[in-house]
């Protein structure tokens, strides 16, 4: 048998158990962000939903109904392109920073951690992060915010929650937006509510209508209640 002229290095196969989550690195950055927000007594909300579900309009409605100083609010706006949503928020007198993701279909904890430093954090008490319009991709990327709000609009159809259960699972609140359009659509509110409750029994379900401002005071009550509870737990 011929010996090889150059020695071939032998290698052994070694099997290694890892068991780490692929979401862990993002989660670690998110945890750091939450600590920073808690230190500054800022309550953070991740607002998610389809493109056109009314997320920016929901924020405009919340700004209009806010009883405190507008300097206490801050908004990060996630989009693939343009400053349009941040401009809409600034036009209401609230600090806003646009995060342009390019081709990325969701915000990540690192994007939020970097961009929030551009906001006047010393004044802000409630920070809204409007995620990229998408019912799929943003769901598993924690941002370091405290609560998740998912907007589902009436024109999207009553089957959206059951078709996108992963997003619904992540929601602390599901808001049916544009409920003034209910008479014009075959939207079975009762069925959709029941399906959300099956997927996520702990989710709070609210309704808003920007024309009559219905639901906004109730939503503020929830948000400020959470913020107060969070502050109390940190003491």
């Amino acid at each position: 048998m011929n010996q090889p002229t150059t020695p071939v290095e032998n290698s052994n196969t070694k099997t290694v158990e890892d068991m780490r989550s692929l979401f862990k690195k993002n989660d670690q950055v998110a945890d750091q962000t939450r600590i920073k927000l808690n230190e500054r007594k800022i309550f953070g909300i991740n607002l998610m939903g389809s493109p056109g579900s009314g997320k920016t309009t929901l924020l405009e409605g919340l700004i209009d109904q806010y009883q405190g100083q507008l300097s206490e609010l801050g908004v990060l706006e996630g989009d693939l392109a343009t400053e349009r949503d941040a401009d809409r928020i600034r036009n209401k007198g609230v600090s806003a920073q646009q995060i342009s993701t390019g081709s990325v279909c969701h915000l990540s904890a690192a994007m939020v951690s970097e961009s929030m430093e551009q906001l006047p954090l010393d004044d802000i008490k409630v920070l809204f992060v409007e995620n990229v319009g998408n019912l799929v991709c943003p769901s598993k990327f924690a941002l370091g915010t405290h609560k998740n709000i998912v907007a589902v609009s009436i024109p999207e159809g009553d089957d959206k929650p059951v078709k996108y259960p992963v997003m619904i699972r992540m929601a602390d609140v599901v808001i049916f937006t544009k409920v003034d359009l209910l008479p014009h659509f075959d939207f079975d509110l009762e069925r959709s509510t029941r399906e959300i409750k099956e997927i996520n029994p702990n989710a709070l379900i609210l309704q808003t209508d920007i024309k009559t401002k219905h639901g906004f005071a109730e939503l503020w009550k929830e948000i400020l209640g959470w913020a107060q509870k969070n502050d109390a737990e940190l003491l």
């Binding site: 070694k14 099997t15 158990e17 890892d18």
Partner: peptide, 8 residues
């Protein structure tokens, strides 16, 4: 989850 790796 990254469960297992085979390494040379």
């Amino acid at each position: 989850i990254l469960q297992q790796l085979e390494l040379d």
